[in-house]
């Protein structure tokens, strides 16, 4: 088997396992944890488009989650539109807001950009908390919106079991990973990379850095808003503190940073490693040791930044490549030995 075949084999293996998991895993609790894991992998991968490739540190992505969640929920509650349509509308709205916020902020330097995005995210939360109605649209302020589980089925984006949600978020995750891969291979990806590391040099070479970053932000905010709709339909209850919280913005960013920003595998890997830690420490130590998972989170964050600044994906990718080398190398030697004999 060649190296390429092995890579495809491992991908197929991962695919089969992730699609077959609900058939084996019958516990709704574990399925719930897995769905949240995929959701965060999806969110961090979307964040990675701008936070990783464009080399800035946006810390207000929960605002886009909130825009997606609120748009689809309001449209389906008040106008009976399918959440799938609301999902797209929310995505488009998020793109508009994203461009509006990106235009002035991308001119700023690192620290200022982080602060501006925090203020933007928190500002949107405070607005939603204070507004009950925008014209005819009911936001219901800090009390949030409840989605009555009346009609189930694919068109209503509402299911009795957890399995459909699992498959939807899995497909969404595969989609965003594919998009990330395509972008990393495209001209835009190279421009972003250049603009993130050396903006002056990239501009001198004729790359419109701000425009590239805006495109990345637009895509990122669109994809993030889709996850908001999923979140709303999955939990059936949204309120400002749940979908537009600062904690969520930070968690999205830090999962990506620990996993490795600017890489395709990093965000998924980060979610894979950190979400179970936070879920299980909450399940087992939540009553006796509150906040333990955040301490672990902080320690891991500091250690990774000090010793592995490119994220955990780097050593793991190296190990994976070495494994592939060993497998193919061993076979090549075998083949060599046989031909000699």
């Amino acid at each position: 088997m060649t190296r390429h075949q092995l890579q495809i084999l491992s991908l197929v293996l991962v695919g089969v396992v992730s699609f077959g998991l609900p058939l084996v895993l019958r516990s709704p609790t574990y399925l719930h944890i897995l769905i949240l894991l995929y959701l965060y992998a999806y969110l961090t991968s979307s964040w990675n488009l701008v936070g990783g490739f464009a080399g800035v540190l946006p810390l207000g992505h929960a605002a886009f989650v909130g825009i997606g969640a609120y748009t689809s929920t309001i449209l389906s509650l008040q106008y009976g539109l399918s959440p799938w349509i609301g999902m797209i509308v929310g995505g488009i709205l998020a793109v508009l807001v994203g461009i509006l916020i990106g235009l002035p902020t991308f001119k700023m330097r690192g620290a200022y950009f982080a602060l501006a995005t925090i203020a933007f995210g928190e500002g949107i939360r405070v607005m939603v908390e204070n507004i009950d109605y925008i014209g005819p649209l009911k936001l219901n302020g800090p009390r949030g919106l409840e989605i009555p589980p009346l009609k189930t089925g694919l068109t209503h984006f509402m299911f009795a079991g957890k399995e459909p949600y699992y498959y939807i978020i899995l497909v969404m995750l595969i989609l965003v990973i594919t998009i990330t891969y395509l972008i990393s291979q495209s001209k835009l990806g190279y421009y972003l990379n250049a603009g993130g590391e050396e903006p002056e040099a990239a501009m001198a070479l004729g790359v419109n850095v701000v425009r590239c970053k805006l495109i990345a932000l637009a895509m990122s905010s669109f994809l993030t808003a889709l996850a908001g709709t999923f979140w709303a339909q999955f939990t059936l209850f949204i309120h400002p503190k749940s979908v537009i919280s600062l904690d969520m913005s930070f968690e999205i960013a830090f999962i990506a940073l620990i996993g490795g920003r600017g890489s395709i595998a990093g965000p998924v890997l980060g979610a894979l490693l950190l979400r179970p830690v936070s879920d299980f420490s909450r399940i087992y130590f939540g009553d006796k040791l509150p906040g333990l998972h955040l301490i672990i989170f902080g320690v891991v964050l500091i250690l990774v930044m000090l010793y592995q600044p490119r994220g955990l994906q780097e050593p793991l990718t190296r190990a994976y490549n070495r494994l592939l080398d060993r497998l193919t190398g061993a076979r090549a030697e075998q083949a060599l030995g046989r031909s000699r004999a």
């Binding site: 540190l57 690192g110 620290a111 982080a114 930070f250 830090f254 940073l257 509150p290 906040g291 333990l292 955040l294 301490i295 989170f297 902080g298 320690v299 964050l301 500091i302 930044m305 000090l306 600044p309």
Partner: peptide
């Protein structure tokens, strides 16, 4: 920018 991230880690640890 790494300092922002590390100090956030300190924030999480101290608060919790």
């Amino acid at each position: 920018i790494t300092v922002i991230i590390v100090t956030t880690g300190v924030w999480y640890i101290l608060d919790n």
